[in-house]
Design a protein around this nucleic acid. Structure first.
Lengths: 134, 134
DNA sequence: AAATTACTCATACTAAAGTACCAATTCATA
DNA sequence: TATGAATTGGTACTTTAGTATGAGTAATTT
C-alpha cells in the first residue's frame, strides 16, 4: 500500500499536465495500476505455488526415504484389509468378507495407515505396491 | 481494453465529485484497477499453466493410448483426474494441482466412475489399470 | 505372573467422497 | 447457425472414510 501511494505521488505530475485532458491522465493511471495489479497477482500466485511445491516434494521425499530405511511390518489382518482395499472394496464390504465389524476394519485401516505413514487408502494402495507388500 | 475503458466511463462520476479532492478519486481509481489487474494476472497465469499441463498429459497420453483399447473413452480431464487419484491425491489436492475447483473434480470423478462402471475411486484405479488406461 | 501383541468391537466425532441436480462457456463439427 | 461434447462451477444432500479413545479377549513372550 505504501508503495502504491508512493508511486501515485511520483506519477503525480498532473499539475504539469493540467493542460492536457484529465481523461488521458486517468487512463494512464488506470493502465499503470492495472499493470501493477497483474504483476502483483502473478507474484502472489507464484509464491503460493512455490509453497505447495515445497510441501509436495517434502512429502514425496519422506515417502521414498522411509521406503529404504524402514521395513514396514503389517500384521496378517492389516495385510488382508489392505489387499481388500486395493481390490476396490469399501470398509463395509471388507467387513463382510472377513466376517468382522466395520469398526474393526476401520481400526485396522487407521493402524496400517500410520504404519505406512499415509493418510488415505489410495495412498496406502500406491505405497504398498511400491513396497511390494501387495 | 474496451472493458477497461467502459469501466472507466462508468466510474466517471468525477463531474459529481469534483467538489471532493481529486487525489481521493485518483486513489480509488488506482485501487480499483490494481484489483482488476490482480484478477487479470491470476486468470492469465491460470490459463497458461493449464495449457502447459495439457501439453504434458498429451505426451504421456500418446504413449499409453496407442497400446490399448478405446472401448472406455475418457476425456483428457477425466484421465488427468483419474491419474491423480491413482497417485493417492485427495479431491482437494487434485483441484489445486489442476487449478480447478473441488466441485469440478467431483464432477469429473462422478462422470468417469459411471464410464468405468464403478462406484468408488479405488475401484476406478484398479479397473483403469486392468484396462491399461493408466 | 506380568507385559506385550494382535484382534476385536464400540461410540462419537470430523473430514472426505460421492450423487443429483443445475447452469455457463468454449469449441469443433454437422 | 445449431448442436453436442467438454470443461468448469455451483448448491444441497447422503454416504463413506478416517480419527480419537476406550476396552475386552486370547495368545505369546519375558
Amino acid at each position: 500500500m505504501a508503495i502504491l501511494i508512493a508511486i501515485l505521488k511520483i506519477i503525480e505530475y498532473r499539475y504539469t499536465i493540467k493542460k492536457f485532458d484529465i481523461d488521458l491522465y486517468l487512463g494512464v493511471v488506470a493502465i499503470i495500476f492495472t499493470g501493477i495489479g497483474i504483476w502483483t497477482g502473478i507474484q502472489l500466485l507464484k509464491r503460493k505455488e512455490q509453497k505447495e511445491g515445497i510441501t509436495h516434494t517434502n512429502e514425496a521425499f519422506d515417502q521414498t526415504h522411509v521406503n529404504h530405511s524402514d521395513k514396514v511390518l503389517l500384521s496378517e489382518r492389516e495385510k488382508e484389509v489392505l489387499l481388500s482395499m486395493s481390490e476396490g472394496l469399501s470398509n463395509q464390504e471388507i467387513a463382510d468378507k472377513l466376517f468382522i465389524s466395520i469398526h474393526t476394519v476401520k481400526t485396522h485401516s487407521s493402524n496400517l495407515f500410520s504404519k505406512l505413514q499415509v493418510k488415505r487408502r489410495t495412498q496406502a494402495i500406491q505405497k504398498s505396491k511400491e513396497l511390494g507388500i501387495i
